[in-house]
Design a protein around this nucleic acid. Structure first.
Length: 512
RNA sequence: GGUCUGUUCAUCUAAGGGUUAGGAUUCAAGAUUUUCAUUCUUGCCAUAGGGGUUCGAAUCCCCUACAGACUACCA
């Protein structure tokens, strides 16, 4: 007997943008599959037509693309088990529901949503909870209580009905979770879940089990919120007679808010100023726009690296991982059990690490659009050089502008703090002299400027700190940026002199 | 309320009965950079509490506390 090929699926519901937690689930599935030479499938779980959100499915695929998570089989890619959209597999599920009814594992229920709601609110008033289970099903309207003829008549008349799972009584359901180990439940605590809805669509539970079986999924890796429904799924596999090929389950820990209680939500991002979505998303209903990591200038590989370490660790002290390295090192048994708080600061740090690891050319390519949007066109050579000079001081691509705008245009304002600190009485005069000195230089290469300049300042008996910082103020408008002589060389001799003259004219001397 | 799951520095985590409980982020200090950032060094900071088991417990067991998830004809 050969071991089957590892096959996992990421099965989101297209009800909106994917958030960080979903991306991580997809990532761990992907890493697990690829580590084991298996397949990663995308299956769209759109069985709830009322929650369909246009654009969400595309968003999911675009987000995975951006992250570098490659789909082997999916609605766009196709594959041997197509279609991969549950709404397109609709016809399939009724037969399986029927199979369960025939074998006595499921039954028809005719209770209306209104009747059930009433039962629930009534139970609540009395401090309890209504559960559709072996205790209550005897008193409700279903094929277990109705005489066969009455039931058949109702079905024939097209009376709306659902199919419910007949949860066995007092049965201990045991299962091994690859992350959590042995987990057990008593079936008495579970309810008769709806498997097939009155609108002709299956619920998640049925569709998920049927599709995982049909698609030959070997491992189900999903969020912890699914743990409580694991026993139902196991029982479903057993009812279908698929126990032997049932996938192995793993439930990933949750991603929690950076501060406060509870799991990470969209609101946290808005409040704390960081994205919770990989890509920006415009809500088609409200028009609200949520920011995305991509749009905020995060690099996908850094984003993925950060996510990979949320709940997983390699057991070594390495923390910078390319996708290839992640695939190489990933294993489910190094995934933790406890929830992780999301840390936006560390995410920034990761981005910086990836920013400085990118070549100047790559970064320049990413930065070029920012420059274009400001109507600035420069040579590729200059762009690459400037990028290389300032990248170490940036956390984000767009900060290349903040750190290096003065290479492209003269400063229009001067940092007041620095002015009051540096622009003392004698300084404008000194700067004017320096402008004159620069005008006489023949060789305008950074080292060739620095040497005679140092000599000149020494001869004058000026204070180096004052001169350098003041000169920097003239050239960039503040107290930042790379080496001054590099700046001089790049912006050129006339521009250097002109900026000094402009500063001398425009910055009023500080008295005292 | 019930069921299930979890709990090591502020945060992400290592240590799968024997280490001064390690690393990273943040923060602080110093060095470097005649600026800023980077980089380097140093520092601060943790086994939720209580009981066991054991020569020995972060690690195994029990209780308590806290946290979270689930409890829909949603996924």
């Amino acid at each position: 007997m050969t071991t089957p090929k590892i096959r996992v699926r990421f099965a989101p519901s297209p009800t909106g943008p994917l958030h960080i937690g979903g991306v991580r689930t997809a990532l761990f599935n992907y890493l697990f599959a690829k580590h084991n030479g298996g397949d990663f499938l995308l299956r769209i779980e759109d069985t709830d037509q009322t929650r369909y959100v246009p654009g969400a499915e595309n968003y999911i695929m675009e987000a995975l693309d951006w992250c570098g998570i490659k789909i082997d089989e999916g609605p766009r890619e196709g594959g041997p088990h197509a279609p991969y959209r549950q709404s397109e597999r609709k016809e399939l599920y009724a037969g399986y529901a029927q199979q369960l009814i025939d074998s006595g594992h499921a039954y028809y229920a005719f209770d209306t949503p209104e009747e059930l709601d009433a039962l629930r609110t009534d139970a609540e008033v009395h401090g309890g909870t209504f559960t559709y289970n072996n205790l209550t099903r005897k008193g409700l309207k279903n094929s277990l209580t109705l005489p066969g003829s009455a039931c058949a008549a109702l079905l024939a008349s097209g009376e709306p009905h659902v199919v419910r799972f007949k949860m066995p009584e007092n049965l201990v359901v045991e299962e091994t979770d690859l992350i959590r180990g042995h987990v057990q439940f008593n079936s008495d605590q579970l309810d008769d879940k709806v498997l097939f809805k009155s609108d002709g669509m299956p619920t998640y539970h049925l569709a998920n089990v049927v599709d995982d079986h049909l698609m030959e999924i070997t491992h189900v890796i999903r969020g912890e919120e699914w743990l409580p429904s694991m026993p139902l799924h196991v029982l479903l596999y057993e009812a279908f007679g698929w126990r032997a090929t049932m996938p192995q389950f793993s439930h990933l820990p949750l991603i929690l808010k950076p501060v406060g209680k509870g799991k990470l939500s969209k609101r946290d991002g808005d409040q704390l100023g960081f994205p919770v979505f990989p890509l920006a998303w415009k809500d088609p209903e409200t028009g609200d726009v949520s920011r995305g990591y991509r749009e905020d200038g995060y690099l996908p590989d850094g984003f993925i690296n950060m996510l990979s370490l949320l709940g997983w660790n390699p057991g070594t002290e390495q923390e910078i991982f390319s996708m290839e390295q992640l695939i190489e090192s990933f294993s489910l048994d190094r995934v933790g059990k406890s929830g992780s708080r999301f840390d936006p600061e560390k995410t920034k740090w990761f981005n910086h690490q990836y920013l400085i690891r990118h070549t100047d050319e790559e970064l320049a390519g990413l930065f070029a659009p920012f420059l274009n949007s400001k109507g600035i066109t420069v040579s590729q050579e200059l762009l690459v050089r400037v990028t290389g000079l300032v990248k170490e001081r940036c956390h984000f691509v767009h900060e290349i502008w903040d750190q290096g705008f003065f290479f492209f245009e003269a400063p229009t304002t001067y940092d007041e703090k620095i002015v009051s600190k540096r622009w003392k009485d004698g300084v404008p005069g000194m700067m004017a002299e320096i402008a004159g000195f620069f005008g006489n230089l023949e060789n305008w290469q950074a080292p060739a400027i620095k040497e005679p300049f140092s000599l000149f300042v020494t001869e004058k008996g000026w204070n180096f700190g004052t001169i350098m910082n003041s000169l920097r103020l003239c050239l960039v408008g503040g107290s930042f940026g790379p080496d001054i002589f590099e700046i001089c060389e790049i912006i050129g001799q006339p521009e250097t002199i002109s900026r000094i003259q402009k500063a001398v004219q425009n910055i009023p001397a500080v008295i005292g």
